[in-house]
């Protein structure tokens, strides 16, 4: 349905996106993962026809939208990372404005506005100005404004950044509803791994402007099939212990967590007794050990050597 081919974008000599190719099939929910500055927003801008790539092409059902942007604008809804609303207008007035410039009129527009306000749970507060809303409520209206024209494809750029858990759950539910019940194709970008794991069947991982891995969540997890993740809960933090463990050959990565250490080790390596002994020698007590199933977060860590929130 939508295909980006070898996209490249350079800003003042700095390459923001390099050789990015991805595709979305109809009705799919695809995640685009990457830390801040990875190039996700630039990629989205090129896919949505707002930014012209230096090279490469974006095709919608075989038609290049670089030369014919109107093709995608009719069927695309974009939820930007920013709250792209007018603070001095009410939720209703914002939706009415964006609906009218989508050329919706009269009862059709009114019905659509009320349907979307109901969907995002803000029908009762539609007359209040956006500037009086909480961050989560603003984000919900931000999503509603992208759905006024019933788009076939929705691109969501980090729609849950900095909001309360209730609004976050509401947004995730809305995305599920769109994708599973309405058959809307979704491209969801985030640096929250768990959101992407919950919502998306396929994932692209970006770093430094490039796609570094892609596939279904299962396929990506299999990258770590040769590794185990151990979570050690310790009675006190000890930097020396972490350094000593890093020097042990089967341990591939050591990361300090809030209450202990996270170790990525080669599968089937018999390190447990060695770890316990090392901890004792450093006078650190291991309260418990948990063997963790690899997550996308672990995959990202494995691929880039850093966490998504770095």
């Amino acid at each position: 349905m939508l295909e980006a081919m070898e996209l490249r974008k350079v800003f003042k000599g700095r390459t923001a996106v390099d050789d990015v190719s991805l595709f979305l099939d109809q009705g799919e929910s695809v995640g685009l993962l990457g830390p801040n500055g990875a190039g996700k927003s630039t990629t989205i801008s090129m896919i949505s026809s707002l930014l012209t790539p230096n090279s490469g092409d974006v095709r919608l059902n075989g038609v290049s939208i670089v030369s014919k942007p109107q093709f995608i604008r009719q069927v695309l809804g974009v939820v930007p990372q920013e709250i792209a609303l007018y603070e001095e207008l009410s939720a209703y007035e914002n939706l009415k404005f964006f609906g009218s410039i989508y050329r919706l009129k009269g009862k059709q527009l009114e019905a659509k506005i009320q349907e979307l306000l109901e969907m995002v749970g803000l029908r009762d507060r539609q007359k209040e100005l956006i500037k009086t809303y909480s961050g989560g409520m603003k984000r919900r209206i931000n999503i509603a404004a992208a759905l006024l024209h019933d788009p076939q494809i929705v691109i969501m750029d980090e729609p849950t950044v900095g909001i309360d858990p209730q609004s976050r759950n509401h947004i995730l539910e809305t995305v599920r509803l769109l994708n599973r019940e309405k058959g809307t194709t979704v491209l969801y970008t985030s640096h929250y791994m768990e959101e992407v794991e919950q919502l998306c069947s396929r994932v692209y991982i970006m770093d430094h402007g490039r796609i570094i891995a892609s596939g279904t969540t299962e396929e990506l997890r299999r990258i770590l099939s040769g590794e185990d993740t151990l979570l050690l809960k310790l009675d006190k933090p000890n930097k020396d212990l972490a350094n000593v463990l890093r020097s042990l050959a089967p341990i591939r990565h050591v990361e300090e967590t809030d209450n202990g250490l996270k170790l990525i080790i080669a599968k089937h390596s018999s390190l447990l007794s060695q770890i316990v002994q090392t901890a004792e020698s450093h006078q650190v007590e291991i309260i418990n050990i948990h063997v963790h199933t690899p997550s996308l977060e672990d995959v990202f860590l494995h691929l880039t050597g850093r966490t998504l929130r770095d």
Binding site: L50, E82, A84, L85, Y86, I101, A145
Partner: peptide
């Protein structure tokens, strides 16, 4: 421009 409201307007085909 900063909040990308104008980009949202462009996406409507206006």
């Amino acid at each position: 421009k900063r909040e990308r409201t104008f980009q949202r307007i462009l996406l409507t085909g206006s």
